[in-house]
Amino acid sequence: MKIKYFILPLVLLLLAIPSCKTEVNYKGEITEPLLVVFADAVTNGFPKVTVSKSAFFLNKINREGTDTINYKPYLLADALVQYSVNNGEWISMTYDAKEESYLPDYKTASRLQPDDKLTVSVSHPDFPSTSASQLMPEKVDIDPVEVKVYDKINNKGDTFCEYHLTYHIYPSEDKTLVGRLSLQDSYLNDLPLMSNDILFQELNYDINNQNWREIIGTVFSFEEDELEDYREHLDFRMSEIPESGKDIVVVTRAPIAVVNDKVERKLKGVITNCYFYSAETYLYLNSMRKYKGTSTGMLGLEEKVQVYGNFSNGTIGCLTAKSYITYITMFKEE
């Protein structure tokens, strides 16, 4: 039972009984917009940079019918965006209207390698120039060691299976990295799913005699009506992994079959994603998680969270660097 689910409504109820709401004039400083840069880089991939500007909170343009910012008017397509690798020459990035981001020329650019020092620089006439740097994380070996699937658990006609996955995490020289394991049940009948995303070919692994294959690339992207069941992720620090490595066991359960649009789909397997984040990337992710966890906008009940950023000269945003590995475990049909 979450105590906070009782407390917060109770407090709000007590406050609401005699309270009144009235409009009030803002008496602080009306601040100017700031440059906002988010750059994402994946080891063995290419950087992608989104440039926009912020808005004063009392005159932002909202999406129609909502109180949430419409980001499109604030995108900046005329910035000078470049990146360099290991202090080498600057490589220009051009604005892609479809992606709404700045991308390199894939034909000529080289993929980012582990331990590369990536520097992203952005200039715009309306804002001070800014830059940020990150070391690209290495891809840490994690071996799926064991999968155990336990008897179905009957409960009023629904059947479940519980499976335990054990991964062996190998040590890394970069102790600042943070790993994140997340699981995703797969109910889809046909694999591969989206051909432009899938880089693996192996299917139908035998549960008791797996032949794992490392997957490099993006994870599956499902349509919204596809069935997915994301589990909570598990974070671990590479500084806590000894030289002999460490086994991590993840336990989860899922229904044997689910029905969507009157079509029954059986559990096919589980997808394991393991990300490795740089220290600053993890700070950003953690601060954003806390930001989303605080209550909405009411000044005075909870402290507002300052989201982490690493761009210079007062620019909002973060250059995030990560690597990842994806494993697919397919359950053999009985």
Binding site: F38, S54, F57, M288
Partner: peptide, 24 residues
């Protein structure tokens, strides 16, 4: 005193509006 996010911006990673807090 209260902590106020005077600027708001869009974070493409989370696809959400975020308030920028300059100082507590």
């Amino acid at each position: 005193r209260a902590t106020l996010g005077t600027q708001v911006y869009y974070d493409p990673n989370t696809e959400s509006e975020v308030a920028y807090v300059p100082e507590r």
